[in-house]
């Protein structure tokens, strides 16, 4: 348990160990740690930035959505208006067309009626003559009474 040369040997060993640690152990490990710290800090920073970006993008998307909704409703409004006006137009057109058709039909009907009346008149004249012949049992000079019958027919 006495002090001897071991003391010096131990001091020398200690000095060598400290030197080695300072030269070859401490710097690479601490620099690796610092670098990792930096990397982590950068990573966190990037994550923060990304979050901010995401927030902005979300806001933009919401705004776009709002705008497009407004546009869509405006378009729908416009379309509705157009459709209404087209329908109105169609209605009026149809009405005028219908009226025109009705008018044409009336004209035709009138014409038909007149023609039928003319035919009837002609036939009535013949019938009247035939009837009169039957009544008189004698022949009548057609030529002499034609004028009389025509006058009668025109009064129908």
């Amino acid at each position: 348990m006495n002090i001897n040369l071991t003391l010096i040997g131990q001091t020398i060993a200690f000095a060598i160990f400290v030197w080695f640690c300072m030269k070859f152990v401490w710097p690479p490990l601490t620099s690796a740690m610092q670098e990792r710290q930096k990397k982590i800090a950068e990573g966190l920073d990037a994550a923060g930035r990304a979050e901010r970006d995401l927030h902005l993008a979300q806001e933009r998307a919401a705004q776009l959505l709002r705008e497009s909704k407004e546009q869509a409703s405006a378009i729908i409004d416009r379309a509705n208006k157009t459709a209404n006006s087209i329908v109105e137009e169609a209605k009026t057109q149809a009405r005028t067309e219908g009226e025109k058709l009705i008018a044409a039909a009336k004209v035709e009907i009138d014409l038909e009626v007149n023609r039928a009346k003319d035919q009837l008149r002609a036939q009535v004249a013949v019938l009247a003559v035939v009837g009169a012949e039957k009544i008189l049992e004698s022949s009548i000079d057609g030529a002499a009474h034609n004028e009389l019958v025509a006058k009668l027919a025109s009064q129908l």
């Binding site: 002090i3 001897n4 040369l5 071991t6 040997g9 131990q10 152990v25």
Partner: peptide, 22 residues
């Protein structure tokens, strides 16, 4: 022996432990 002696076990084990550490 006095001062001019070395504890072989102390030196050996301390250096061995130092080498393990380093």
């Amino acid at each position: 022996m006095g001062f001019w002696a070395v504890h072989v076990d102390t030196m050996g084990w301390s250096v061995f432990m130092g080498l393990i550490f380093l």
